[in-house]
């Protein structure tokens, strides 16, 4: 564990909490992509199957359980409790176009051709593009609430901080995992355009509005 890893995990946790609190307090999930949330639930489920066979630390176990629970909790709020506020008409990204390529790639490029390892690899590939339905929703409506922007910023920061963690680990521990690194860079790059808008608009108190 290094400072980048810890800060990455904490911003990931904060992103998830921001989203849950936003939905709960406003009693609405307007502007949030249920498709992205489903993809994240698939990501955590396929990745954290190692809860069964690999105990690392209490921190590790607790965080994995929290991510799983928060992810399914978000889906419950969006598709059950506050279903009436769900922006279904704008959330039209076809997630099979992300799931299928991630699955095929996981079968081809992986560390070991074993069920758990392939599922882990699939989760890494899928996570790298899981935010696309959310970004697509923002681009379709042309705007995002500030709180949604904060959520996206924390979520993007998480993977960006993980890149620093990997650089640190490469030099300090001689450890590197090319699958995670390449997918993590792809994931972070997808947020770059958003980061720019966040810094130039949201942080100056303006609403995130895309140019017409």
């Amino acid at each position: 564990m290094n400072i980048f890893r810890l800060l990455g995990d904490l911003s990931h946790l904060l992103a998830i909490i921001i989203l849950l609190v936003k939905i709960w307090k406003t009693r609405s999930c307007a502007g949030i992509s249920g498709k992205s949330q489903i993809l994240f639930a698939v990501v955590y489920t396929s990745r954290y199957l190692d809860l069964i066979n690999a105990f690392i630390s209490p921190y590790n176990t607790i965080m994995k359980i929290v991510f799983l629970a928060a992810s399914y909790g978000t889906i419950y709020l969006m598709y059950m409790k506050f279903k009436a506020t769900y922006d279904v008409n704008h959330d039209t990204f076809r997630i099979e176009f992300l799931i299928a390529p991630a699955a095929v790639l996981a079968l081809i490029v992986n560390h070991a051709f074993e069920p758990l390892e392939i599922l882990w690899t699939f989760s890494i590939y899928l996570e790298s593009v899981a935010i696309l339905p959310q970004l697509f929703l923002v681009s379709k409506t042309g705007e995002a609430e500030s709180i949604t922007s904060h959520y996206l910023f924390m979520l993007g920061s998480y993977r960006a901080l993980y890149i620093f963690n990997w650089i640190y680990r490469y030099y300090a521990e001689n450890h590197y995992d090319l699958i995670a690194i390449v997918a993590g860079i792809v994931q972070t790059v997808l947020y770059c355009d958003f980061f720019y808008l966040y810094i130039t608009k949201v942080l100056k108190g303006k609403k995130l509005q895309l140019p017409a």
Binding site: H12, N60, W120, L178, I179, A180
Partner: peptide, 10 residues
């Protein structure tokens, strides 16, 4: 390629 991933990373 790295032979196994790190189960510690989330």
């Amino acid at each position: 390629l790295w032979q196994d991933h790190d189960h510690d990373e989330l």
